[in-house]
Design a protein around this nucleic acid. Structure first.
Lengths: 327, 327
DNA sequence: CTAGGTGCAAATAATTTGCAGAGGC
DNA sequence: GCCTCTGCAAATTATTTGCACCTAG
């Protein structure tokens, strides 16, 4: 357990006094992995200070939830459970009916679907709970799989965020390389080449960081996926590349495709970076969003420039694809 | 409330004796809409027979869950709630924090995502719970929206299933019309024309049935969507049509695209028809799946025939698209 | 000094159980 | 007649509260 524990003193955003008991309970809680019931925590703190009463544990738990240090989760087993929220994004749960352990996951796809459906129903969502009940691998096969206990979630989240970022970079690299190869406009080609270069470079950085991440935790790569993504990360550049491959694309259109890709990619990482709570994954997503935005700006500048150039060269119809209703 | 109540006597699949009390409780439960707590039901049955004890209600509830007549749901408010499962498919919930009412929805997209993620984690799912907490329209705006109380769910489900089926038919019609228009092979054209005709006809049937559904419940169209679908229903034929529109498709390929569409469509309706519990929606889906399968078979036969014909006419490379790894 | 935290025991609240009697098959 | 259901009251379980006392700010 080489993970630095959170600084307790900074974790008291909302009201309340500090007290030795409270600190003790909070420490015991935050040190623990998994989802504790009030009684689990009570037993735990009693080992360190047998003088603590059950009511205090309950009260402290309430206070922690109010202060945002803990989240209440209900697995339908009659008692409430609590999980730390420090550097631990909101997530969904698999709950094993056999061993009663739970494992966590996050799916941006499910989150988006829920958002869409909520919007259709005009429902103002404050929180979504997804619980998948059943039997886990460990129980079915008998062997022990590397788990996702609290404390590694943060790293696994970073790993997954980075994998997605790397996949997107690869996709982007392919796209720009192909775009550079097919553009007739020399300045446009230069832009695509530059972007390809940047993607290449950034890819290198990401891969280095990814490798560093693995050093801290050799099991990291074998741990189950925490963050599930589908469409957006791979989709945009891949679709763009497919469009280029089909051919019949002029220089302006190629830039437009690039703009669409970068914009989608930027929005995507921005949105998810913001949604996630403080953690390394968030960091990576927001950095990535910035990177994409820079590319986007470059492409837009270049698009405008090319437009003007073509305008002066004598191509009257500008903004071919804009303003046309899509449906 | 003109909905016929379920036949109580047929609802006793698993063990247990019938008794007047049990019948009374079961009747009171099944007559009710929404999600009753044990105490709600206790109060309800006490109005009819004040001699019934709380324990009996609890015991009957347990028995109903075991017999598959009721499902236990937990909204995290400390007490268990129960919902009837008779002609009432498993679903997800919106739960209003203000009025504490809940409304139901179903999203095949979310279900598929959960299945995929569970598979990736090698988790054997028995049940998935999705709860969206927040504030409902009624509470935010003050007005009353037509609701989805139990008893209409069945009809709304049928309505939604039919809407999806109709949308798919329309999509299919467009696809086959276009395919017929662009095929050079006269026999292939005949097939597409025939399929277009069938889609047209089936579309008529569906629309008539849809209209009939509206007669039973004039509010039906204004009720919120219960069954949310995205990709599969609209996607396949629409994608196929787009492919045709792009051009460069030969006759064999056009048939292959059709096969892909029908296969996807068939699988989709089959799978969802099977998943849903006994209800009119299920019926519609399974009928639809059969229809699609018939089309699929026709297309495959035609594909084989054309292949052979081309083979004898002197086009050596058969089965162009088959067997190639998709990656 | 005083608001808020703490321990203990008692109070709630939802649900289950023991047991004697009633009722279905 | 046997086995299960039923009602009542008592038990259980998770959690909250009242109250006197203690402690941090």
């Amino acid at each position: 357990m080489n993970r630095p524990l959170p600084d307790i003193s900074s974790l008291k955003p909302v009201g309340g006094k500090r007290s030795s008991k409270r600190d003790l309970i909070l420490n015991a809680f935050v040190r623990q992995e998994g989802h504790l019931s009030a009684d689990d925590l009570y037993d735990l703190v009693r080992k360190e200070d047998p003088g603590i009463g059950r009511a205090t544990v309950y009260r402290t738990l309430q206070w922690m939830v109010g202060a945002g240090v803990a989240r209440k989760v209900d697995f339908g087993d009659g008692r409430s459970r609590f999980e730390p929220s420090y550097r631990h994004p909101r997530h969904f749960h698999f709950i094993c009916n056999t061993c009663h352990r739970s494992s966590e996951f996050l799916s941006s796809d499910i989150e988006s679907l829920i958002d869409e459906i909520a919007a259709a129903r005009e429902f103002a969502t404050t929180q979504a709970v997804v619980q998948v009940f059943g039997e886990c691998v460990d129980c079915r096969t008998g062997r022990r799989t590397p788990s996702l206990e609290h404390g590694v979630t943060e790293r696994v989240f970073a790993r997954d965020a980075m994998r997605i970022a790397i996949a997107t970079e690869r996709s982007g690299l392919e796209f720009y390389t192909r775009a550079a190869g097919m553009t007739r406009d020399p300045q446009g080609r230069a832009v695509f080449e530059r972007l390809a270069e940047e993607e290449q470079e950034h890819l290198g950085t990401l891969e280095k960081r990814y490798a560093e991440l693995l050093v801290d935790d050799p099991d990291l790569e074998t741990r189950p996926t925490f963050l599930f993504f589908k469409g957006p990360a791979h989709g945009l550049f891949a679709d763009g590349t497919a469009e280029l491959r089909k051919g019949g694309v002029n220089d302006l259109q190629a830039l437009l495709i690039g703009i669409r890709c970068e914009r989608g990619s930027h929005r995507f990482f921005k949105r998810y970076g913001e949604r996630f709570e403080d953690s390394e994954g968030k960091q990576i997503f927001l950095e990535f969003a910035d990177e994409e935005r820079a590319h986007l700006d470059l492409l837009i500048r270049e698009y405008r420039a090319l437009q003007t150039r073509l305008g002066t060269v004598g191509r009257p119809r500008r903004r071919a694809a804009a303003g046309r209703p899509t449906r």
